[in-house]
Amino acid sequence: MAECGSKAGNRDGEQLALTCVDDFLNWGKENSLFYLLFATACCGIELMQTGGPRFDTDRLGMIPRPTPRQADLMILAGTITHKMASRAHLLWKQMAEPRWVVSMGSCANAGGPFSKYSYSVLNGMDKFLPVDVYIPGCPPRPEALIDGCMALRERVRRFRALGIRDRDPVVIASASPAPVCGDQGFKPQRPEGQG
């Protein structure tokens, strides 16, 4: 191999960087957060605008994927109704681990303007999915969405594939029971203690 200049800690003629496995994996993950193209309502338009030429999430390595199998990140953009909740949960289950969830906008956070009077809107998708980042707004500005994604990257950087999370992977599953609704009943079942 040609001489590429030597740095401290490098052996002659080789390029070496010493790092932890987790840091190395996270470096790759945080720079390629492919998101699921999942837009239910108004926030979906702002999600589109964020992917557009002015805000351009591509430069963050964020590319929309139409299928959950290829996505790392689920951006819950818009209102989740009782009928939609089980489908959103199914999509989340189809994503490969490690997977992240960003709740975009007031509706996905807590029901938004529909929380008080609507009979059909779920007051916050965090009852069923482990949400990593909440972005307030109705709808949030694209800058807010990008800010939320940067916050998520911090979180991804702290992820330990070989560490604590791996020893106790059940936590996520138990914190996110599948919603039972649609044909089986009108109200989705809430997990214990979350009312």
């Binding site: 309502a41 108004c42 109704t81 009928k83 059909s120």
Partner: peptide
């Protein structure tokens, strides 16, 4: 899948308060 009962919400709100829901 996106039935948010906006028409029903209109019955709980005063006339000007419903304008933001027409946005949605």
């Amino acid at each position: 899948y996106l039935h948010r009962s906006i028409e029903k919400i209109g019955e709980f709100l005063e006339y000007p308060q419903f304008v933001p829901y027409t946005d949605r």
